[in-house]
Design a protein around this nucleic acid. Structure first.
Lengths: 224, 224
DNA sequence: TGAAATTGGTATCAAATTGGTAAGCAATGA
DNA sequence: TCATTGCTTACCAATTTGATACCAATTTCA
């Protein structure tokens, strides 16, 4: 995971970098806000840790600029400014978290992970309600019970889980299986039928919901 | 946005609830961890604020249980326990943020929003009074209650919500359903009737208003 | 003022559409 | 060969749609 640290205090930066790299993060470092902005044009950081008071471009404006550019990687402010107003200004600038100095390195790590976990689409396991899919070993469990799926059903389920709770249209589902040249038959219905039979039928709560005229959604709706 | 607050101190809870509701959040409240767990089975919260020390089931285990159930709504711990170990345990249990008491209500709000923004950022939803439509999920709620609409009714409602509080003429409404070749019958009346029956009838306040000779408007008029 | 006309709400229904179910069959690979 | 998988088709149930008839309320106009 590639992280950018922007901090004008070299000593502090060094200890943070040491720690994060020890924990397995890939880190880039900038000492000035304007340099950081430059780095962001060329790299796709998965998270950023920003000081506020810095030469060149302060952290708040750096954050605002990045957000204005449509970059929405998680941002944590790391600063000595600890008043309520400071914090609100930070969140208002588009930050995801705000940590006041002095701080513990493990807390920074925990917050970094917490804030990044939502974006990690490359996570090896998907979970929706009691349904779990492990992308690495190609396994699906519901309620701790293994489910064997055919390749087609697997693809459909993964697509639905990744989209959850969004609805996928018939067309989107077809393109999952056949890219852009779907058979001119009702093959999709067939596969969906098989998928439901395995994923929903044996259990007392349906996760696969049909939205007539729209498509299919996989979600945990608390109602019937 | 539906939020669950779990906190055993009634006074603190009351002030948090007051504040959040003033800021436009819909809140549910539980005083015990086990009650909260129960509530989570029946409701789909968009975020949760948990105390740690509580009767019944402590916040950490509540959080772990929810995560194990595949519920991944953002969770913020709100607690007096302020050591590094406490915080790490909180994040480890699956929390997204950790706020130490005493705290400022605006900071809680800022953190709540920061943590929720990722899921709401890309989900386009329309809201008029207590009526809410999510375009991605293709879901409609009124007063937290799900409403099932036929494709035609959905299209009409979305058009009305997007136009709200503007009036849509009969012709505009027809072009929503049939582009430019409406049937020569009163089919529109039929669909509008069905729509009202589902959206307005079951509730004590009408949002769909007819302006005789003009058209139909969806709006929250404070009068009868 | 009041009768007629117009507009819009209510209700029911048949035809069309959509989607779930099930069975059959060919292709593939163990 | 046998089992699995993918595709095809047919059939059925449920929902949706557009149609129509009939009211109720409002407006028009004599």
């Amino acid at each position: 995971m590639l992280v950018l640290l922007v901090e004008d205090n070299r000593d502090l930066a060094a200890s943070v970098l040491d720690f994060l790299e020890l924990q397995g993060f890939d880190c880039d470092y900038a000492q000035r806000g304007d340099h950081a902005l430059q780095l962001c044009q060329d790299n796709n950081y998965e998270a950023m840790i920003l000081d506020i008071m810095m030469p060149g471009l302060d952290g708040l404006n750096l954050c605002r600029e990045l957000r204005a550019q449509g970059k929405n990687a998680p941002i944590i402010f790391l600063t000595a400014r600890d008043t309520l107003e400071d914090k609100l200004e930070g969140f208002d600038a588009g930050a995801d978290d705000y940590l006041v100095k002095p701080f513990d390195l493990p807390e920074l790590e925990a917050r970094l992970k917490a804030i990044s976990k939502r974006r990690t689409a490359n996570s090896t396991s998907l979970k929706v309600a009691d349904l779990e899919a492990n992308l690495d070993n190609h396994e699906v469990f519901r309620n701790k019970q293994r489910i064997d799926l055919s390749p087609a059903c697997w693809k459909l389920l993964i697509a639905l889980m990744q989209a959850s709770p969004r609805v996928l249209s018939r067309q989107e589902l077809e393109s999952v299986l056949w890219k852009d040249s779907p058979p001119d038959s009702e093959a999709l219905k067939s596969h969906m039928y098989t998928l439901r039979k395995q994923v929903d039928k044996p259990f007392d709560k349906n996760l696969i919901h049909t939205l007539r005229g729209v498509g299919v959604a996989l979600r945990d709706t608390s109602d019937a």
